[in-house]
Nucleic acid binder design. Structure first.
Lengths: 104, 104
DNA sequence: CCCTTATTTCTATATATCTAGAACTATCGC
DNA sequence: GCGATAGTTCTAGATATATAGAAATAAGGG
């Protein structure tokens, strides 16, 4: 992974609200969560949440998919796995990624 | 690990210059590197570097130790391991940490 | 079409960050 | 103590971020 992408993703996660959003999505798993459901759990104005979601999406950590009138958000596991891999290999030592890698 | 600390550490790493600094230190290993050596490798004004180092230190990702007139900086592995662990467990799935954990 | 629900985009403002020169501090060797 | 070397702290300006209300857009139902 390239340094720049990693930095942008780390920055995206480096905000309390966004980290909460991301974790909530990560825990929601494959089904994801509609923006509205996220808003209830995170308790932040819609416009603010949308702004933060946008940043997470830009970095590839989160994806959105429209389902009728609601937008379902999902944590993108491969992105997180790559980021974790990047951090873990930093010192040139390795982490063994268990069979099912992951996200958070 | 608590969410807040994780967010601050992620934010600290979420800057290209700081991420470079951190990685350089991580690769330098236990011996660490004097601030001056870092400056040569990263190529950034001393005051700017110092500012970034300060932020990394505040979050516990980096430590400094005085050796005579030079300040030696080191990546704090346990901090990075905890952060990686935090990210990896986010989705409630696990990562197997190899024997020698890590840093990056 | 119009209404409702869901969510984004626009806009403004307050606050924080980044950058880097200049001045200051610390430590050593003489 | 002096001077040289190594870094930090001070300062300031430019830029970026976070927050949130208000207006706009999207989709479905009647």
């Amino acid at each position: 992974m390239e340094l720049e992408l990693a930095a942008r993703q780390l920055e995206a996660l480096g905000n309390l609200t966004r980290l909460r959003v991301y974790r909530t999505l990560a825990r929601a798993g494959r089904d994801g969560l509609p923006v509205g459901a996220l808003q209830q759990r995170i308790d932040v104005p819609a416009s603010t949440l949308s702004h933060h979601l946008h940043r997470l999406i830009q970095t590839g950590l989160v994806a959105q998919e429209r389902q009728a009138t609601t937008l379902v958000c999902r944590a993108v596991d491969p992105a997180m796995n790559a980021l974790i891999g990047f951090l873990a290999e930093g010192g040139h030592r390795k982490w063994s990624a268990g069979p099912g890698s992951v996200s958070a």
